[in-house]
Simulated assay, not measured.
Amino acid sequence: MAFKRGDSFAGGVISPTASASGAKLNSNLGGALKNTGDIFASVGAKYGIDPALLAAIAVHETGNGTSNAVRNKNNVGGMMGKNGLMTFDSIEQGIDKMASNLKRNYFDKGLTTIEQIQRKYAPIGVENDAKTNVNQYWVSGVSKYYKQFGGG
């Protein structure tokens, strides 16, 4: 289940799947994410997920392409495995794996708003957030970037 017109996000409306072009995304992508807008657009089309949302999550999770996770592991989504942060062979693979995870474990299970996704993706108070307590900013951060990328 992809985001559809009328679904809510932080008080707004989620745009249709094709809302963000690669060029539009590139205007706000930096660091290791610079010029990856076309990848977000093609992966979004592949999984039926608004590319603006994929880019917004990646920007929030990586400090707009500056985190060690994206620079050293191509991990754009803060994805965790049994041994901590997952490692991917390329930024494109990292984007694809994040989108695939969102499709299978969130959208296909009816979690279709930024708030619903946050409760599972970046829950407040989990062990890996106990020291930093940054998950409380996930909805506002992702929503802000989503609007910047032309979503909502």
Rank of each mutant, 00 (worst) to 15 (best):
M1V: 12
M1P: 00
A2W: 04
F3Y: 02
F3G: 07
K4C: 07
R5N: 08
G6A: 10
D7P: 00
S8M: 09
F9H: 14
F9K: 09
A10D: 14
A10Y: 11
G12T: 10
T17F: 01
T17D: 02
A18E: 12
S19W: 04
A20L: 00
A20I: 00
S21F: 03
S21C: 04
S21M: 04
K24H: 09
L25H: 08
L25K: 12
L25D: 09
L25E: 06
G30C: 08
G31F: 05
A32D: 11
A32N: 11
N35F: 02
T36R: 13
G37S: 03
D38G: 08
I39T: 14
F40P: 00
V43M: 01
G44H: 12
A45E: 14
A45D: 15
G48Q: 10
G48H: 08
G48D: 04
I49E: 13
D50I: 11
P51G: 08
A52R: 12
L54I: 01
L54E: 00
A56Q: 03
A56R: 03
A56K: 04
I57V: 15
I57T: 08
A58P: 10
V59G: 00
V59F: 01
V59H: 01
E61R: 04
E61M: 03
T62Y: 04
T62H: 01
T62Q: 02
G63P: 00
S67Y: 06
S67I: 05
N68Y: 11
N68K: 01
R71P: 10
N72H: 12
K73N: 13
K73E: 07
N74K: 02
G78F: 07
M79K: 06
M79P: 01
M80E: 11
G81F: 14
L85G: 05
M86T: 09
M86L: 15
M86V: 13
T87I: 13
T87D: 05
S90W: 05
S90F: 11
S90R: 10
S90E: 05
I91K: 11
I91H: 13
E92L: 06
Q93C: 05
Q93P: 00
G94Q: 02
D96A: 12
D96W: 13
D96P: 06
K97Q: 15
K97V: 07
K97P: 09
M98D: 05
A99M: 07
A99K: 07
A99R: 05
N101S: 15
L102P: 08
L102S: 07
L102K: 08
L102T: 09
R104K: 15
N105H: 08
N105P: 00
Y106S: 03
Y106D: 01
F107M: 09
D108E: 15
D108A: 14
D108T: 12
D108W: 13
G110Y: 10
T113V: 09
I114T: 04
I114N: 02
E115I: 07
E115T: 14
Q116Y: 03
Q116M: 14
Q118P: 12
K120H: 11
Y121P: 14
P123R: 02
G125F: 06
N128F: 14
N128Q: 12
A130D: 09
A130Y: 14
V134G: 03
W138F: 15
W138Q: 04
V139S: 09
S140V: 13
S140Q: 15
S140Y: 12
G141W: 04
V142I: 04
V142M: 06
S143Q: 02
S143A: 15
K144Y: 15
K147D: 07
Q148T: 13
F149V: 06
G150I: 09
G151F: 07
G152V: 01
